[in-house]
Every structure is written in structure tokens, then in C-alpha cells.
């Protein structure tokens, strides 16, 4: 696997596009299907220019019909293709839930392991764009609760490309959750195709005082928080699961064994969020014996995302919240 120190920097949206393009160049079975992904280039510009390059047979614009988009992916995947569907906003996945949860996820098992559904469903989640309650959801945890689905949530351009290429090559249905606010973030990305195995977390930053486990945009915010905290002599270690399910938790657990403290951060609402799974894995493991503070979760408030800019800002964890919570845990002021 190439390291992330290539000199070329591209944005997250470009990294996603490059993964799609290189996958389509390498494998004729790969095609894109979704709303406004053709001439329009996708609501967030992910597939800009791809219709011109690959044509309407491989970059398929659909009517507004999410259930049929997901189902079309299932049917095509079952019969030898490798569809990559786009759900324009993660919120609208609710309209495709049956095909995803009851069909895509279960077909293989129900058929005694004799069918495969190698499809990817990409979708942008998250708040911060002023799009209010029906266009700002973070629903990733739902899908981790469905055996048969894989859930990937990249936090950097490098991870976005490698994980998407791996997802497209995977034999299973994969939900690939992008973040609207990450699209414009730049980072080093090798030009050649590469994959990052699904399920492998990443130690984003090393530190000895506290393990911060964060997903998606919260990894970026944790990194900024780390710089603040470092000025006070607090060194946090940041673990990014990258794939929520399956997730090899050994690196996270080793990290907590080392630091003795853990803070879990995600944007989705706190109650029954993915953080609960992470905390459970920590306290069920040998790390329990090393804990010298409560394991805390910092997550979205249990409310829909408000429209007002200020309320929206306060609805989900920000850098200063991570700094404050980390400081409390490290100083024993909880």
C-alpha cells in the first residue's frame, strides 16, 4: 500500500471522483447510477465530467426514485455488474431502505451463500451547510446494525480514494458515507490506483494522554483540537475507524491500554450512536483494567439539525468542545 506522503494534493471530492474514474477504467462492469449525476455532475460535483468521459450508459441519470436506484444496484450486482449508486443526500436513503436492508444485505445469506451483491452506495451526510433537518442527517449507525452491509466513512482525501476503490472491488454491499464539509478539504493522494482494506482503522496522530476515537469530519476537528491541546502539553492519540463495520478494534484497544483514557467523538446524535458501540468494545476488552477515567462520548445533540446557523453550529461537536472535553478527562476534572 503506498504511503500518504505523495506530493500531489487534491480535494476529497476529486479523490472520490478519481476512485470512480480509475475503477471504471479498470473494470467494465463498474457503472454509476443516481439522480443528476450526468450532465449536472452530481449535487456536489462528484461526477463532474464523467458523463462526458464514459457516456450515459455508464453514468446513468435516473428519475427521482430512490427505492428503484438501490434496487437497480442490487439486481445488477446479483447478475455480474458492479454498480455504484449515488443517493443525493444521506437523508434520502430512507426511501431506499427496504431494498438496502431487506434485499441487498440479506440476499446472500438467505440464498445459502450462493449469491453475491457487490454494490456500493455512496452518499453525503452531515450538517454545516444550512440545509436544515431533512438534508443534514448522519445515519451511518443504522447500517452498522444490519449484518450483511459494510459501512465506510472516510475522513481524508487519501482514505476516500483508497477505501472507495476497495469498496468497489468488495463482494458485498457497501455504504460509503462522504461528508459535505470534507469535499473541499485537500490532502496528499497518490495518482496511481490503490486500495485500503475495509475494516482497518488508522492511527491519525500519536499521543500518550488520551485516546480520541473520531469518525468522518470529527477526525479533522480532533486534529485541530490536538494542536490546541498540545500547546498545553496534552498529547492526544487519534484513532479513525474508517470502516465502521466491519471494524478491527485491536488498534483502538491497544491505544486505550496505553493512554488509560478514551473519548469518542461523532457528529450523529448521541443516543444509540456509533459511539455506544465503540465504548462498549473498549470496556469489554482488556483495556478496561487500564482505564483511569470514565469513557466519554461527545456527539450530536439529540435533536434534528436546526436551520439557524448558530443553532446548527451548536448541535454537533466543534473543535472547542473536543478541546474542553479532552482537557477535563486528562486533568481528571470530570
Amino acid at each position: 500500500m503506498p504511503s500518504a506522503n505523495g506530493t500531489r494534493e487534491i480535494t476529497y471530492v476529486e479523490a472520490v471522483r478519481e476512485a470512480l474514474t480509475q475503477s471504471m477504467q479498470a473494470d467494465e462492469r463498474v457503472f454509476l447510477i443516481g439522480e443528476d449525476i450526468g450532465v449536472y455532475g452530481g449535487a456536489f460535483g462528484v461526477s463532474a465530467g464523467m458523463h462526458a468521459e464514459f457516456g450515459g450508459e455508464r453514468v446513468i441519470d435516473t428519475p427521482i426514485s430512490e427505492a428503484a436506484i438501490v434496487g437497480a444496484c442490487v439486481g445488477a450486482a446479483l447478475t455480474g455488474m458492479r454498480p455504484v449508486g449515488e443517493i443525493q443526500f444521506m437523508d434520502f436513503i430512507t426511501l431506499g431502505m427496504e431494498q438496502l436492508v431487506l434485499q441487498a444485505a440479506k440476499v446472500r445469506f438467505m440464498f445459502g451463500g450462493k449469491a453475491t451483491v457487490p454494490m456500493v452506495l455512496r452518499t453525503p451526510g452531515g450538517s454545516g451547510t444550512g440545509a436544515a433537518a431533512q438534508h443534514s442527517e448522519s445515519l451511518e449507525t443504522w447500517f452498522t446494525h444490519v449484518p450483511g452491509l459494510k459501512v465506510v466513512m472516510p475522513s481524508t482525501p487519501y482514505d476516500a480514494k483508497g477505501l472507495l476503490m476497495a469498496a468497489i472491488q468488495d463482494e458485498n454491499p457497501v455504504i460509503f458515507v462522504e461528508h459535505k464539509l470534507l469535499y473541499k478539504v485537500s490532502g496528499p493522494v497518490p495518482e496511481e490506483p490503490y486500495t485500503i482494506p475495509l475494516g482497518e482503522p488508522n492511527i491519525v496522530r500519536e499521543g500518550k494522554h488520551l485516546t480520541v476515537v473520531a469518525t468522518s469530519i470529527m477526525v479533522q476537528r480532533a486534529k485541530q483540537a490536538a494542536e490546541e491541546l498540545a500547546k498545553e502539553g496534552i498529547e492526544i492519540e487519534i484513532v479513525d475507524p474508517r470502516t465502521l463495520n466491519p471494524f478491527d478494534d485491536s488498534l483502538m484497544i491497544q491505544s486505550v491500554v496505553k493512554t488509560g483514557k478514551a473519548l469518542v467523538v461523532h457528529e450523529a446524535v448521541k443516543t444509540s450512536g456509533y459511539g455506544a458501540e465503540l465504548v462498549s468494545r473498549i470496556v469489554e476488552s482488556e483495556a478496561f483494567d487500564y482505564l483511569d477515567a470514565p469513557v466519554r462520548r461527545l456527539a450530536g445533540l439529540d435533536i434534528p439539525i436546526p436551520y439557524n446557523r448558530n443553532l446548527e453550529y451548536h448541535a454537533v461537536p466543534q473543535v472547542e468542545n473536543i478541546v474542553a472535553e479532552a482537557r477535563k478527562l486528562v486533568r481528571g476534572e470530570y
Binding site: L95, G130, A132, A133, H135, P306, Y307, L311
Partner: peptide, 27 residues
């Protein structure tokens, strides 16, 4: 109308039987 919580896409005035705009196509 919605105390700033809904915005352009969700304006409602339930008192006037306006049950609101919808962010979901066909919602």
C-alpha cells in the same frame, strides 16, 4: 414562522392550515 428552525424549505403556518413545505420530494 418556524422560530428559525426550519428555514426556506420548511416554512409552515399550522394555525392557518399551512402544513408546511417539504424538503423531501413527494414527502
Amino acid at each position: 414562522y418556524c422560530r428559525g428552525r426550519g428555514g426556506s424549505m420548511h416554512i409552515a403556518n399550522v394555525d392557518a392550515n399551512n402544513l408546511g413545505a417539504n424538503g423531501i420530494v413527494a414527502g
